[in-house]
Every structure is written in C-alpha cells, then in structure tokens.
C-alpha cells in the first residue's frame, strides 16, 4: 500500500536546481534508502518531505492526501513525519528527558507525567534510561543520536526520515545507532534514509534509490542495485564506493 508519493518534485536554491523532478513511492512498512554522491539532493529531498523546505513544483502525497503546496497545516504534517539529522541537533540547554518530552507536551498536549512515562519507556528501549537527566553535551555522539531518534519517535510519527544519521559518528559508535534502525525496520516503521553506509543499506532496505543530478536515476531492490546496476552512473558511483573500501 502506497504511503508516501512524490511526483515530479522540483526544488531550486537561487540558481542551483537541487531537485529536478523527483518521483518516489514509498509503501507502508517499507524502508527506502537514498544513495548518491554528496550534493545529489538526498538531504534536500528528505527536508522537502516534512516541509522544512518548500518545494517549487510537483506534488507530495501522504496516505493519499496532498501535503505540499498552499493551505497545508505544516505543524500538523510534521507531527506525522519525524526526521533525524546528521548532526543530532539536540537542544543543548535541555536535559535528555526535556528534549524528548518537549514536542509531546507542547504540540500533542500530552500531560507532563504521561510524556515522561513514554519517554522513559523509549529511552530504556535504546539503553539510555540512566541518561534521562543528563545534558546532551555530556553524551557521546552515538548516545546523542539515539536520543535524537527517541525524540522523533516520541511524537508517534507514521514516517521516519533519517538524514545520514551515522555520518558524524566515530566508527565504533555507528553500530549502536544502526541497531536501533534495524529494530525499527523489524517493527514495521516506514522509513526513508539517506545514507553512505552501503552495507547497511543493502541489509535493511526494501528499495534502494540512486539519486543523481536531482532525479532518481535508478531504483530497485538492494540485490539488484548493488549486485547488478543497469545504469552507467550507478555503476560508476558504486565502483568508487568499492574503491574506498565502503562496500
């Protein structure tokens, strides 16, 4: 069943056309991986989905409803779509618990006690129960990113966007974050992730999209994209990844 649908989406910054007609379909419970060189539009695409960027042309539909263009309650849309950023973006002046409960309390209007209960359950599930009252700067990168994932999950999103969430981490901290994504995938969370972790993309995704020059250049199941890419650009990209020892 189709959940997210992007049709001919364009996004331009000044002279710089970043998205030039993206078509993308994400089914419910699917994990879709976006791969491609830096600057190919992966991050921009994700930011357009939860309207952190306004698209210039095209349509984005969620669950059949148009969610782009005029007259859309963006705050409402964003409670449905969670995003986790490369650089965590936790609020440094709030404790971990406050970071997580801010959205539920102020946006979903859940009571303080309920929000804390829920946050604690989620924190425990990622192994950070005892860090609830710490401030973000006292945590390691991996811990911060796990908190950021929990913060997004606390809003009860139906779609989770992950924007290169392991790119800013030391190598030994990557797995603790990816494990959470694995278990989310197993639980059936619909996710779109931009990533440079090709091995992980191969393992976890239902579909891989190779972005090149602002369009989805090639898409398919991971075995096909990584094993037998048909497009020359895709082959060239993957060759470089292999040369760098990343696949």
């Amino acid at each position: 069943m189709t959940f997210l649908e992007m049709e001919d989406v364009h996004k331009t910054y000044g002279q710089n056309a970043v998205l030039r007609g993206v078509d993308l379909v994400v089914d419910k419970h699917q994990v879709v991986c976006l791969i491609g060189a830096s600057g190919c539009g992966k991050s921009t695409l994700l930011r357009c989905v939860n309207a952190l960027e306004e698209i210039d042309a095209g349509v984005i539909r969620m669950d059949g409803d148009r969610v782009s263009g005029r007259g859309i309650d963006l705050n409402d849309l964003r409670t449905d779509v969670g995003i986790v950023f490369q650089s965590f973006n936790l609020f440094p002046h709030m404790s971990v618990l406050k970071n997580i409960t801010l959205g539920p309390r102020k946006v979903l209007k859940i009571s303080q006690a309920d929000a804390v209960d829920r946050a604690m359950v989620l924190l425990e599930s990622v192994g950070l129960g005892e860090k609830a009252h710490e401030y973000p700067d006292r945590l390691s990168g991996g811990q911060q990113q796990r908190v950021a994932i929990v913060r997004a999950l606390a809003m009860g999103p139906r779609l989770l966007l992950l924007d290169e969430i392991t790119s800013a981490l030391d190598p030994e901290l990557v797995s603790e974050v990816l494990n959470i994504v694995r278990s989310l995938a197993a639980d059936g969370m619909t996710m779109v992730l931009a990533t440079h972790e090709m091995g992980f993309a191969k393992e976890v995704s239902s579909k891989v999209c190779f972005l090149h020059q602002g369009v989805v250049h090639e898409e398919g199941p991971p075995e096909q994209i990584f094993g037998d890419p048909t497009q020359e650009r895709t082959q060239a990209f993957l060759r470089k990844i292999v040369e760098a020892g990343r696949l």
């Binding site: 930011r47 952190l52 964003r78 936790l90 959205g103 997004a152």
Partner: peptide
Amino acid sequence: AAARSLGL
C-alpha cells in the same frame, strides 16, 4: 529545523 520538525 529540529524544533519545527517536531511540529512546534
């Protein structure tokens, strides 16, 4: 961006 993405 982080705050707005939570729907604030």
